[in-house]
């Protein structure tokens, strides 16, 4: 069995042994239950004594789902940052790296093993939690997002982007420092994304550029926009495009293939930098 896979398993076992997986699953089921209760109330809402039309229910359900998913993406991103921050730095800080690296284990294998050991559970968790939430939304309100699978993929990608960045930071910085930089970066990108959207609404070139730079620098918000677009109802996008309202929770169009390719290259590039950084670091 390859050394990379050994580290992947080690990372996964640590998540399980530290009860992180259990805690996350319990919290998630709790939150999904709560949101399900909220969704279940939507069809029974009244507007001036009138029951809502199916169209109105759909729009409200879509808005609610996007909001819940935004919360989820936020939690996922923070979880990824907090898991990845100690993934390498922790071994150095504790001294475990001395014993590990004295074995036939390359730095690249340690890095890839850690990445896989966090990325696979993150993707599985995203798929599970989001699918469950979609199921609950559909069961209670009948709402199905435009592209559910794409939405899951985009949310997972958002988590992976932050995970990759934090892991790279973890090869050089202390655990807390890596986590703080990742969280601040995530927040800054979110605000940059909103600024960019406003720039487009008001046709302000300079502010639009902020959004573009944001999406290139750290594509978390870019992936969130992709998820939003996939979460919207089919007609909604057309309306959105009509009044060009692209705030924090709307997207007028999906990501271009070029942008998706860029995000893939970005992740590979950051992993490459992490590898160079780790190779130069002595335990």
């Amino acid at each position: 069995m390859s050394a990379t896979w050994t580290i992947t398993r080690l990372t996964w076992h640590e998540l399980v042994r530290r009860r992180l997986v259990l805690a996350l699953l319990i919290c998630t089921v709790g939150v999904i239950g709560l949101t399900g209760w909220g969704f279940a109330k939507v069809p029974g809402l009244h507007d001036h004594g009138q029951r809502l039309t199916p169209g109105e229910i759909r729009v409200i359900a879509a808005q609610l789902l996007i909001l819940v998913m935004f919360m989820f993406s936020f939690v996922l991103a923070l979880t990824c940052a907090f898991l990845a921050a100690p993934a390498i730095a922790g071994d150095w800080e504790s001294g475990v790296a001395l014993a590990l690296l004295a074995r036939p284990l390359r730095r690249g294998e340690l890095l890839c093993g850690r990445w896989l050991g966090l990325a696979l559970p993150a993707v599985a968790y995203t798929a599970l939690a989001v699918a469950l939430e979609f199921g609950v939304a559909r069961w209670t309100t009948g709402y199905v997002p435009r592209q559910p699978v794409v939405a899951v993929a985009a949310l997972a990608a958002e988590g992976l982007v932050l995970l990759t960045l934090t892991l790279a930071l973890s090869t050089r910085l202390a655990t807390v420092t890596a986590a703080v930089i990742a969280v601040v970066g995530f927040g800054a990108m979110w605000m940059g994304g909103i600024a960019g959207a406003f720039g487009q609404v008001f046709h302000n070139g300079a502010i639009s550029t902020v959004g573009t730079v944001t999406h290139l620098l750290l594509p978390t918000d870019g992936m969130w926009r992709a998820a939003t677009f996939a979460l919207e109802p089919r007609l909604f996008a057309a309306q959105a495009a009509a009044h060009a309202g692209a705030g924090a929770f709307e997207a007028a169009s999906g990501p271009t293939p070029a942008y998706l390719a860029f995000v893939g290259a970005w992740a590979l590039g950051v992993l490459g930098l992490a590898w160079v950084s780790l190779r130069g670091r002595e335990p």
């Binding site: 069995m1 050394a3 050994t6 080690l10 076992h13 640590e14 042994r17 530290r18 504790s94 001294g95 475990v96 001395l98 014993a99 590990l100 004295a102 074995r103 036939p104 284990l105």
Partner: peptide, 27 residues
């Protein structure tokens, strides 16, 4: 090669056998 570092630290969450198993696997 076997190595006992000056600063000996092993994964606290693992059982002693598992630590040894990990090193056998890596070896």
């Amino acid at each position: 090669v076997g190595y006992l570092p000056e600063l000996f630290r092993y994964q606290g969450w693992m059982r002693a056998r598992e630590v040894l198993g990990l090193h056998l696997r890596l070896g």
